[in-house]
Design a protein around this nucleic acid. Structure first.
Length: 471
RNA sequence: GGCCCUGUCGUCUAGUGGCCUAGGACAUCAGGUUUUCAUCCUGGAAAUCGCGGGUUCGAAUCCCGCCAGGGUCACCA
């Protein structure tokens, strides 16, 4: 049988980093087995639906390099891939469940349900529906339906059963059916709940392996019960651990860097993000840490998937991103950097600048801090430049510097001459060049001086140095 | 609270009964290269393997109990 996996996000907001994390595993496993990876939009919650969210999800997955074989836009033979367009399908199957007594109509009001729940909480017993409507007579049901009384359809869960499944990552997991609520399958607005839709869709879309977040473990029994009620084969389940915040709670929306777009906007490379995310959930058999998605696909196995919920460490991501940046060609960096640039810079000059800053860059959005002094004159902090020598001495040093540069050009020969001068006058080499560095760039940390000044050109260098001398 | 999952350096992890005086990576510290920063190189500190019992000649690895963290208990997914 062809392996088919899926990712099924709800279009309720920004594309979540956890969705990407999960997608990588679903995608890799399907590709490893020459299978398909499907993107299905779970938009049955009409209240939380957010305009533009669907396309946002699709695009950020595309940005990351995860390409579904079937999705709402490109379609596929098992469509439609939006749950809101599959309503008739759900109705048909849920009706089948009702006919076979696996599900039943429930006309209970929200008030009654709330009261029931409050009482159960007070008595410290599990909050569960009490099957009140299970015993409704047929004519009562028909009457209620005819009168248009709002209703839902519930799964009829029989107590006393063991529900066991083999999780590909965690091994055997066992539940008692007693703890499973009579889950609503069809809401009063005519939309199915997640639990009904997910099972019906996964079956119809021939999903073989359900690889999803750990948060779904406790609802897996409901899903298994549904598969059984329909008489369908139960797919394989694999529950990935959840990404955590520093405080160990699951990575939540209040945190601004849970959006995939945040990483894009910050200037992270998609392959670096992917590489890091893989590291959080899986370990390479050879202990490697830096490898591409293609290698993950070929080496992946469930037994090397981590069970604990990893804390997302942005520092390590930055390190990996820096590594990937350093491995790129100047031309590639140029392409990546352009959208982040605050300045118009001609190609030739930009390339030379990139050569100097490539090793220093961690994320592209920080590019401007590294190159602003190439473009605009720096503000010189006079306290900084006179840190080691009094102002008149600083001026003497700068005067000698510019004279040397004019005479011998911005060359390493000039550098040697300046060094000799500094030695002769007993200046500390580091402090000596630091004065020039600050005068030219306004900063204490910059790329090598001669190369920097070469890009600036002698006129600009002269102007910047004279600005200090004339102060 | 019930149920379920998880528990090795600050963080991510390797480890599947003796190669473990617990290995690697990030972060951190020190040194080297460099006029600064970064890169690069070398080295250090950092985990009584959640705790307590067992089993065994021998346990991070197997068993039991406890504890801690997380998830979930909706007409949300």
């Amino acid at each position: 049988m062809k392996v088919r996996t899926r990712i099924a996000p709800s279009p309720t907001g920004d594309p979540h980093i956890g969705t990407l994390y999960q997608s990588i595993f679903d995608y890799a496993f399907s590709k490893q087995n020459n299978g398909d990876f499907i993107l299905r939009i779970e938009d049955t919650d009409r209240e939380r639906l957010k305009e533009g969210s669907e396309i946002n999800i699709i695009q950020s997955l595309k940005w990351a390099g995860i390409k579904p074989d079937e999705d709402p836009i490109i379609g596929g033979e098992f469509g439609p891939y939006r749950q809101s367009e599959r309503l008739e399908i759900y109705h048909k199957y849920i009706q089948e469940l009702i006919d076979n007594k696996y599900a039943y109509y429930c006309f209970c009001s929200k008030e009654r349900l709330d009261e029931l729940r409050q009482n159960q909480i007070k008595q410290k017993i599990q909050a569960k529906y009490d099957k009140f409507c299970l015993n409704l007579k047929k004519d009562e049901i028909d009457k209620n339906l005819k009168e248009g009384i709002p209703h839902v359809v519930r799964l009829n869960v029989k107590p006393g059963e063991d529900i066991i499944f083999e999780d590909l990552i965690r091994g055997e997991i066992k539940f008692k059916s007693d703890i499973v609520d009579d889950q609503v399958l069809l809401k009063s607005d005519g939309y199915p709940t997640y639990h009904a839709a997910v099972v019906i869709d996964d079956y119809l879309m021939k999903i073989t392996h359900i690889i999803r977040g750990e948060e779904w473990i406790s609802s897996t029994p409901k899903h298994i019960l549904l598969y059984k009620a329909f008489g369908w084969d139960i797919p394989y389940f694999a529950h990935l651990s959840l990404l955590r915040n520093r405080d160990k709670s699951k990575v939540a929306k209040r945190n601004n860097n849970t959006s995939i777009n945040w990483y894009k906007e910050k200037g992270f490379l998609p392959e670096a993000l992917i590489n890091y995310l893989i590291l959080l959930g899986w370990s390479h058999p050879d202990g490697k840490e830096i490898f591409p998605l293609s290698e993950f696909i070929s080496k992946f196995s469930f037994d090397r998937v981590n069970k604990g919920g990893p804390i997302f460490d942005i520092d390590k991501l930055r390190w990996i991103n820096g590594l990937y940046i350093r491995s790129k060609s100047i031309n590639e960096i140029k392409k990546y950097v352009k959208p982040f640039l605050n300045y118009e810079i001609d190609n030739q000059k930009l390339e030379e600048i990139i050569k100097l800053v490539q090793d220093r860059l961690k994320v592209f959005s920080e590019i401007n801090e590294y190159i602003n002094f190439f473009i605009e004159k720096p503000n010189i902090d006079m306290k900084m430049i006179t840190e080691n020598y009094p102002i008149n001495e600083v001026k003497v040093i700068l005067k000698h510097t510019i004279d040397t540069l004019i005479k011998n050009g911005i060359t390493h020969e000039s550098e040697t001459l300046l060094r000799e001068y500094a030695n002769k006058n007993n200046y500390n080499i580091g402090n000596f060049f630091m004065i020039i560095r600050i005068a030219i760039t306004g900063k204490t940390a910059t790329p090598p001086l001669i190369e920097t000044m070469q890009i600036l050109g002698i006129d600009e260098v002269k102007e910047r140095i004279c600005n200090i001398i004339d102060k």
